[in-house]
Amino acid sequence: MKQTAVVVAPGRGTYNKAELGYFARHHAARGEMLDAFDAYRADAGQEAVSALDGAERFSGAKHTRGDNASPLIYACAFADYLAIDRDRFDVIGVTGNSMGWYIALACGGALDPMGGFEVVNTMGMLMQERLIGGQLIYPYFDKEWKEIEGGREKIERKMFEIDKRADHVLGLSIDLGGMLVIAGNEAGLAAFEAEMPRVDDRFPMRLPNHAAFHTALQEPVAEEGRARLGRDLFHQPEVPLIDGRGAIWWPKAAELSGLWDYTLGHQVVRPYDFTAAIRVAARELMPDVFIMLGPGNTLGGAVAQSLIRAEWRGMVDKASFQAAQAERPRLLSMGMDEQRGLVVGSHTG
Score class of each variant (00 low, 15 high):
8 V>T: 03
17 K>E: 09
21 G>N: 06
23 F>R: 07
27 H>I: 10
30 R>Y: 15
36 A>I: 03
37 F>Q: 12
44 A>N: 06
47 E>N: 05
48 A>L: 11
48 A>S: 12
50 S>E: 05
55 A>P: 06
55 A>Y: 12
57 R>L: 15
61 A>P: 02
62 K>Y: 12
65 R>S: 04
66 G>P: 00
67 D>P: 00
68 N>A: 14
70 S>G: 06
84 I>R: 13
85 D>M: 11
85 D>I: 08
86 R>A: 15
93 G>F: 07
94 V>C: 12
99 M>A: 07
101 W>R: 10
101 W>V: 01
102 Y>A: 11
109 G>P: 01
113 P>G: 12
117 F>A: 15
120 V>T: 00
122 T>P: 01
126 L>H: 02
128 Q>M: 02
131 L>P: 00
133 G>P: 01
136 L>G: 04
140 Y>E: 06
141 F>R: 09
143 K>Q: 13
145 W>A: 02
152 R>S: 13
153 E>H: 02
155 I>Y: 00
156 E>W: 11
156 E>N: 09
157 R>Q: 14
158 K>P: 00
169 V>T: 03
184 G>I: 00
190 A>C: 11
191 A>F: 08
191 A>P: 04
193 E>Q: 13
200 D>P: 05
200 D>Q: 14
204 P>K: 03
209 N>K: 07
211 A>Y: 10
212 A>F: 03
215 T>G: 11
216 A>M: 13
217 L>V: 04
218 Q>Y: 09
220 P>C: 08
222 A>I: 02
223 E>H: 15
224 E>S: 13
225 G>C: 09
228 R>P: 06
228 R>C: 15
232 D>H: 07
237 P>Q: 10
237 P>A: 15
241 L>A: 14
247 A>Q: 14
250 W>P: 02
254 A>P: 04
256 L>P: 03
256 L>T: 00
256 L>W: 06
257 S>G: 11
258 G>E: 05
266 H>T: 01
268 V>A: 02
271 P>N: 07
279 R>H: 09
279 R>N: 04
280 V>N: 09
281 A>S: 13
288 D>P: 09
293 L>M: 08
294 G>I: 03
300 G>M: 06
301 G>A: 11
303 V>M: 07
303 V>C: 06
304 A>M: 12
313 R>K: 13
315 M>Q: 07
316 V>C: 06
317 D>H: 01
317 D>A: 05
318 K>S: 08
319 A>T: 00
324 A>C: 07
325 Q>D: 11
325 Q>G: 08
328 R>Q: 10
336 M>D: 14
337 D>M: 12
